[in-house]
Design a protein around this nucleic acid. Sequence first.
DNA 1: CTGAAAGCGCTTACAG
DNA 2: CTGAAAGCGCTTACAG
Lengths: 338, 338
Amino acid sequence: MVHTIKEIALRAGVSKSTVSRVISGKGYTSPEVREKVLQIIEELQYKPNAVARAMVSNRTYNVGVLIYRREHPIASHPFYGKILDSILTAASSMNYSVFVTTDHEMSLRSADFMFEKRVDGLILISRLQQNVIDYINNFQVPYLMVNGSTDVDDVIHIVNRDDEGGRKAAEYLTGLGHRRIFVLAGPQTHRSHSLRLKGFRQGLTLLDIALNPSSIAYPSTSTFDEGFRTMEREWEHFRQGGYTAIFATNDMIALGAMKCLLDRGVRIPEQAAVMGFDGVDYGAMFSPALTTIGVNMEEMGRQAFILLDKLIQQEPVTERNVEYEPQLIVRQSTEIHS
Amino acid sequence: MVHTIKEIALRAGVSKSTVSRVISGKGYTSPEVREKVLQIIEELQYKPNAVARAMVSNRTYNVGVLIYRREHPIASHPFYGKILDSILTAASSMNYSVFVTTDHEMSLRSADFMFEKRVDGLILISRLQQNVIDYINNFQVPYLMVNGSTDVDDVIHIVNRDDEGGRKAAEYLTGLGHRRIFVLAGPQTHRSHSLRLKGFRQGLTLLDIALNPSSIAYPSTSTFDEGFRTMEREWEHFRQGGYTAIFATNDMIALGAMKCLLDRGVRIPEQAAVMGFDGVDYGAMFSPALTTIGVNMEEMGRQAFILLDKLIQQEPVTERNVEYEPQLIVRQSTEIHS
DNA sequence: CTGAAAGCGCTTACAG
DNA sequence: CTGAAAGCGCTTACAG
């Protein structure tokens, strides 16, 4: 059974105000009264009604995570799922709860939904357009973006230094002696894929290596299947091109491509080195384990939440953009002994 | 800005009751009044306050998902993440939101949390004990279990027919001619691992093949790493045992073991066939792709939600246990051409 | 140190 | 067909 403050008050022979005070710890109460009230609360297993509290305090301690992407699965997504997890963990440790929605058509419906729920704040993930931002701005709900797209300005944005990562990848691969590198570049409408490619190209340019357009293929989505299919399609071209390495702008594409090669009996890394970007769990599990540029997903999710909490509490937030430095993670797919 | 029903009423020159009626569609309103009110709502971008609604209706349209397990990550878990995803999808399509919590010490804290939030119902995942159930029963909140453990009775329980799956695995592997099969059996305190092993053993018995205790190793967790480590430990034993196949009671263990073998140059399936259980996404991506007994995670999550909704609506629910039939999925790790 | 009152934004009988 | 009133379970000034 679920009880109310009123019942507690009745049984303790005090007023509701008093009960409220002992629960909140604000205001004064005599030790005896407090003792008694506490005991009854314990006895009745009274759980304060968070809905009523939210109603009066105008604060729900709920935040919304909005993911804008076509495909549904979000929790089980190797990249976003990780970020989601660290958001959930951070939220829980700060006594917040989170609502998760994924919006397919970038409609305003899921934002509306969050507004109706009166969330204290919003975390926006993935690609989204100015009109959504404008809409959200209307409602004065604090929000920030994690790993979003570029075309939106003046938004607190937590990102990975993707161009830097691309450069690191180029540096590493060329350092191993690779000169003919085939690139699988995911959807260029996405900030991270485009920056990763850009950084990679820059890295090569520094060494006077040109990245020929024919050396780049563009999977239409950033999935394993598309990586696989694209590699299948490019197989003949790849084989005849004298390539010794592959760089993909994310791990899932790299894994898909790698499987395609493996299925064809290509030895990795001996005949072709393969490198991804993200640092998803599966990369390490694969055989051979995937070399990659690791993104600090946990920290990004955690920081996002901490920042959002500050915004909610109206604490001063100086940073507009928080950038994380990606790390090279060397594994079996590029070096034989490791 | 966010407005209230009061402001709408003011601007429309009607009472709050009337506004409420046009919004809810219950009760009568003259077309002209309705028109006017609707227009103002549109103009002001009024969003009804779900918190206030919940307060009066005693219904939040929020449900809680409680996961009881030691390790934190839940969203990114290859199995539970999938179930969670399908719960989220189902919830969203039925206009519910969900709070997700993972509880490490099987304390009652996260349940309390959900009660305070006044969720309409609860979905319990993974292993949990009688005392938690007893506690939850106290609060009259509808709940059900998905893929939980056995020792709890009289709970609506959505499960996979794990023993049946174990039998299918045995049948399939022996059908390929395997007689010496090495088994990696995950934590036997978990319902599914124990039933899968049991079913597998039964399957072998039907064919008069005994499953020698020395042919079973017990990874202490159901993770990739433990699968890997266990296989490493058992390597010598395995090699000398004349085994031609491995059956693991879940995919992640199978994958870990497979990677261990692959790293040692074992050819799969030629020298050793490997089979898992679950049907996680990664299994299909691996090279070689993993043969497995597929569990219908999407359907389990979806059904769980539909059932929970019925319980919440107090509709009659006849079934106590909902069982799903697992499916054999043949891939490269057991057969050369597929 | 404690209680009565008002109010948060809705919905729901009940009059009219 | 519409409005006034009460109430959902709390918190927060304000008296006393």
